[in-house]
Design a protein around this nucleic acid. Structure first.
Lengths: 117, 117
DNA sequence: GTTGATATTGACAGTCATTGTCATTAGATC
DNA sequence: GATCTAATGACAATGACTGTCAATATCAAC
């Protein structure tokens, strides 16, 4: 199953399910959800929640990073921002918050899509 | 309607609807959704998408800012990070992305809740 | 005050991502 | 092959959100 994260772009559960079905795999939607949730819990894939509330998944490098995602085609660039991490920690500490994590994602339109559309 | 954003914490549409009904207002769920969406479009309220995909709304200051939200009680601190904005713009430009916006929220546990729990 | 055009409202049904259920299936062990 | 157990997949259920549409409010013109 992990071998099927060959897409290298963020995909929703349903898209992955369709993809698998069209490849001939007879796999159930429930199993896709179960597997993705399990993989996400084990930090084997990254999850982000899109603006419309749908969760999308992608195979990623193990290090902490964020994403620059094309709204149109899903192409994804992994980006790092050590300054942001430090800023987030500092802000949390100043306000007495603990167990802080942060969500930071960039959504835009990539070169290919902006020239096409 | 805008006067009912007196709660000062992030609330979902449904929570706001319940709140209004319990106050005796005979307001429909559709109207709550419509109004919140309109207010959000007019930048009168801030929207963030929680990790479970539910959208929550809050009356906020007009300037661009982000939020440090207590996972337990919902208490919210508005925070600013000009450095983050600059970083996001730079990253987007370097990768040729346009129409970029970013989601950045910090979730943690505030002092009161961490000492209580 | 009444009429009529127009916009807003709210009850309700529909949509869609996600989760729960449960009988069936696959795989291991005897 | 029999049996036990865990994983699977078809399908129903949930819940947030959106669409529909008749009823109501608003308001200008008469």
């Amino acid at each position: 199953m992990a071998a099927l994260d060959e897409v290298d772009e963020f995909r929703s559960s349903q898209e992955l399910h369709d993809y698998l079905r069209h490849k001939g795999e007879n796999v159930g939607l429930s199993t896709v959800y179960r597997t993705l949730t399990a993989l996400a819990a084990a930090d084997e894939v990254d999850v982000i929640v899109r603006e419309d509330g749908e969760s999308i998944y992608r195979r990623c490098s193990g290090t902490h990073h964020h994403h620059l995602v094309c709204r149109s085609c899903g192409r994804t660039v992994e980006v790092e921002g050590p300054a942001v991490e430090r800023w987030a920690d500092a802000v949390a500490r100043e306000n007495g918050f603990t167990e802080v994590n942060h969500t930071l994602e960039l959504f835009g339109v990539c070169t290919a899509c902006s020239s096409a559309g």
